[in-house]
Design a binder for these strands. Sequence first.
RNA 1: GGGGAGAUGGCCGAGCGGUCAAUGGCAGCAGACUGUAAAUCUGCCGGCGUAUGCCUACGGAGGUUCGAAUCCUUCUCUCCCCA
Length: 401
Amino acid sequence: MSFLSVKKQMELVRRGTEEIIPENELLKKLETSKKNNKPLIVKLGCDPSRPDLHIGHGVVLRKLRHFQDLGHQAVLIIGDFTAMIGDPSGRNKTRPSLTLDEAKRNAESYIKQSKVILDIDSLKIVYNSEWLNAMNFSDVIGLTSKYTVARMLERDDFTKRYQSETPISLHEFLYPLAQGMDSVELKADIELGGTDQKFNLLVGRDLQKEYGQNPQCIITLPLLEGTDGVEKMSKTYGNEISLLDSPEEKYGKTMSISDDMIVKYFRLAADADDDKVEAVENILADGKTNPRDVKKDLGKAIVELYHGSDAAQTAELHFEKVIVQKDIPDEMDEVKLKSDQLLVEVIANAGLTKSKGEARRLIKQNAVKLDGEICADINHKLSVGEEFVIKVGKRRFIKVK
RNA sequence: GGGGAGAUGGCCGAGCGGUCAAUGGCAGCAGACUGUAAAUCUGCCGGCGUAUGCCUACGGAGGUUCGAAUCCUUCUCUCCCCA
């Protein structure tokens, strides 16, 4: 295959990135690659400490996909070994570490989910336990001798934790080194990561130099804030739009982001090109259009990206009906009553609330409706044979038969 | 090795013998308002019970006491200072 011109390639590569370090080296690599018709090795490490991916992960996976589209060799490194360390990047706490087995299981789910973004056929998948697990203690000592404590402490989260007197375990220093070894092992040309990965990526560069390799360029991508618009998207904060979310959920969650996140979401979550982003900026700036309508566009674009345009259409209709017109959805889970039961019990048993106490509270707060009628009686009983749609809060529904 | 401080609900952080299911703040949930949101206001915010109430919970284990998150012993963990 022949590569696009370096200029063209750079257009796509630059899209949505935060930093390219150093850019001139990347240009050189692209030129050489084109001249020799040899794809660059583009590395992305994934942390299989959690099985679920969200559209925040999608940002960097999408960038890897861009490189695939340009004809380069994408390599997904499953950090099964490093998961045993638990990367503390961007956190103020030590992360729980996983066993190799747990990591492997999560990784499988991870790969399955990445398929919606990556071209799985041309993707090279490797597990870093393969080489890291093979290192012995003297290898590790040799590796650690290449970095100093002062440099390690430069890393933002280490600095913070050190200053705020929260514990830092020694083994956490090994994480960046281990990740760097991955680059050495792969002879990576480029490594991708979120901005919180910058330090680790740079360590990879340094280590490659130590091992006499041509050091990788690093490309960082902005971290996508979650639906709250403040915290980085993460399951921990409960602000994520998961890849496994249904089209309806993805659409609905997108609609709930704050207005000032719209442009960023277009760029990072909907993979919009510069023209589209500019168009959106203009529309928002002129003040004539209701931002809600722009957000509807966004919601559809995101759902379309992951589920196709039919699903996007359906998701929008569903939203209009359920949320805007406060109607009930066409489809919902059903439960069958075996005997007369308290409403409270039915709600809690169906999992609409965590406990009966919560169900009671919601009823008292006028948040529960039976067939559209507010039910404020916590002693309300449902009889067998009656058919009801129970609505709890704004978006929890169940049909009782 | 020596000395000091500390461990409280999802998080931060008060409490320092009874009135503590534990002040505040954040997060979350619901209602009102909206553009679906954000902001704002109001309510809720361990479990079970309609409820007086009961159970579980202030790092772990013992103990003192009529009564302990609060006192004592011990264990585990963390931080700081000195060497």
